[in-house]
Amino acid sequence: MSTQQAEKPATKVRLATVWLDGCSGCHMSFLDMDQRLLDLAPFIELVYSPLVDRKEFPESVDVTLVEGSVSTDEDIPKIRKIRKRTKILIALGDCAVTGNVPTMRNPFGTEAVFDRAYNENAQLQRQKPTLHLPTLLERVRPVHEVVKVDLFVPGCPPPADAIHYVISELLAGRTPNVGSVTRFGR
């Protein structure tokens, strides 16, 4: 999209954001773009996000930012559907990119984690929660081990400046040089 076109966009870019197993810090960092969100708003339609009220992931999304790792049995069909309906899928933040903190349970296994949280450290009603909850996978995985990822934006969370740079570059039709603005653990 050239700057001339960008001033009066014919069609807005359809952007979605998704929250898998993460702390929501990447979404907070997205919001930390502050007033720059207003500058982006004319060019973007936020079609699905924890920040808006749509329940079903829509068809034909241009860009999806994925926060979080693939951690439950629900996450797998969810991310596959999102991949099918998205042109450019971006792994946003270390959990999506590397697995990060959620993968720290991998060497121990989910049973050990449940035991620590709901038995060992619980004061009342020691029991493993099952009702209405997805099953934890035995192994947490970064997004690209499950579906194809087009762009990786590491960081914990990626700085708002980095997210703004990535979105701006994509809006301008360029491939962002992510390594210049963030790194693992940033």
């Binding site: 590397t98 991998n106 970064p142 081990e145 934006v153 390594g179 790194r183």
Partner: peptide
């Protein structure tokens, strides 16, 4: 190690993680 990933422009790891218990 982190610095090397940055200078070599590694933004993700293509090799499956092993997650050894250490």
């Amino acid at each position: 190690l982190q610095d090397l990933a940055k200078t070599l422009e590694i933004t993700h790891i293509d090799i499956p993680y092993r997650y050894p218990k250490l």
